[in-house]
Simulated assay, not measured.
Amino acid sequence: MGAAHVTVTIRNPASPERSWEGLFLVDTNATDSLVPRDALEAIGLAPKAQRIYELADGSEIKMDITTGDIEFMGEIVGGTIIFGDPGTEPILGVTALESVGIDVDPGNQTLKRLPAIRLKKLKTEQPVSRETGQPA
């Protein structure tokens, strides 16, 4: 089974003309997206905080993060971006995918657009009695 890749543009929200484009590995086991540090710094993005991430081998690592615009497949989403080491393969995490309604077809490792973006029910409706019109 092959890995899915997609072309992604990262933009600096404060200066949208400053951007970086790369071929990203789609990783549904990664929550956030990862971009090489030198690419983020080149478009004027600086670390805003640090977050602890769990790696595939179970170890933990504290990494710098920022926020930026993530564009792919004709969609745009603001998201958390991890500062990776220079030369690291960029990763598109599941949060960006789900935010714009794109899923990975596990059978052929391709990206597919969902008919609608998933949204949990906002308000629980209580059944109403037909006789009294009051909550049952």
Results as ranks from 00 to 15, higher is better:
Glu131Thr: 12
Gly93Ser: 00
Pro47Asp: 10
Pro16Ser: 09
Ala96Cys: 05
Val128Lys: 10
Glu60Pro: 00
Pro86Asn: 03
Glu89Trp: 02
Ile76Cys: 02
Thr7Cys: 01
Glu17Ala: 15
Glu131Pro: 00
Thr31Gly: 07
Gln50Lys: 14
Ile65Arg: 10
Ala136Met: 12
Pro127Cys: 12
Asp85Lys: 08
Ile65Trp: 08
Phe83Lys: 01
Ala14Tyr: 11
Thr132Asp: 02
Gln134Ile: 02
Thr124Trp: 08
Leu40Val: 12
Arg37Trp: 05
Thr80Pro: 01
Gly74Glu: 01
Arg11Gln: 11
Ala96Lys: 01
Phe83Arg: 01
Ala49Tyr: 14
Val8Arg: 06
Trp20Pro: 00
Thr66Lys: 05
Ile52Gln: 14
Glu125Lys: 15
Pro47Cys: 06
Glu54Pro: 00
Asp32Cys: 10
Val94Ala: 14
Asp105His: 05
Pro36Trp: 00
Glu21Lys: 15
Glu54Val: 13
Val35Arg: 00
Ile43Met: 07
Pro127His: 10
Ser59Arg: 14
Val94Ile: 15
Leu34Ile: 15
Thr66Ala: 11
Arg18Leu: 15
Leu92Gln: 00
Asp57Arg: 09
Lys120Tyr: 14
Ile82Trp: 05
Ser19Glu: 15
Ala3Thr: 04
Ser59Glu: 14
Thr80Gln: 13
Ile82Thr: 10
Met73Arg: 13
Met63Gly: 06
Leu111Val: 05
Ile82Gln: 04
Ala49Lys: 13
Thr67Cys: 02
Lys62Asp: 05
Val94Arg: 13
Glu75Cys: 07
Ile61Asp: 08
Leu97Ala: 07
Leu34Phe: 08
Ala136Glu: 06
Asp32Ile: 09
Thr7Ser: 09
Gly93Ile: 00
Val104Ile: 14
Ile82Glu: 07
Arg37Ala: 12
Ala46Leu: 11
Arg18Cys: 11
Leu119Trp: 10
Gly87Trp: 03
Gln109Gly: 08
Gly68Val: 11
Ile91Asn: 03
Pro36Ile: 02
Leu34Gly: 09
Phe24Trp: 06
Pro135Trp: 06
Asn12His: 09
Leu25Phe: 14
Leu122Cys: 09
Glu89Phe: 04
Met1Leu: 06
Pro135Tyr: 06
Thr132Met: 03
Thr28Met: 07
Glu60Leu: 08
Gln134Asn: 03
Glu125Val: 15
Asp85Ile: 02
Ile65Gln: 07
Leu34Asn: 07
Gly79Lys: 03
Glu41Val: 10
His5Leu: 04
Ala30Thr: 09
Thr9Leu: 01
Leu119Val: 14
Gly22Gln: 06
His5Ile: 03
Arg113Cys: 04
Ile76Phe: 01
Ile52Leu: 10
Ile43Ser: 04
Trp20Cys: 03
Ala39Ser: 14
Ala96Arg: 02
Asn12Ser: 08
Val35Lys: 03
Gly87Val: 00
Gly22Glu: 11
Val100Cys: 03
Gln109Leu: 10
Thr88Val: 10
Phe83Thr: 01
Leu92His: 03
Lys48Thr: 15
Val104Ser: 05
Thr67Gln: 13
Trp20Arg: 14
Gly58His: 14
Glu54Gln: 15
Glu98Ile: 00
Thr67His: 15
Asn108Cys: 04
Gln134Cys: 06
Asn12Leu: 06
Thr9His: 02
Thr80Tyr: 09
Asp105Gly: 03
Met1Ser: 06
Asp64Ile: 07
Thr132Phe: 01
Ala4Gln: 02
Ser15Trp: 10
Glu75Asn: 08
Ile70Asp: 05
Glu89Ala: 14
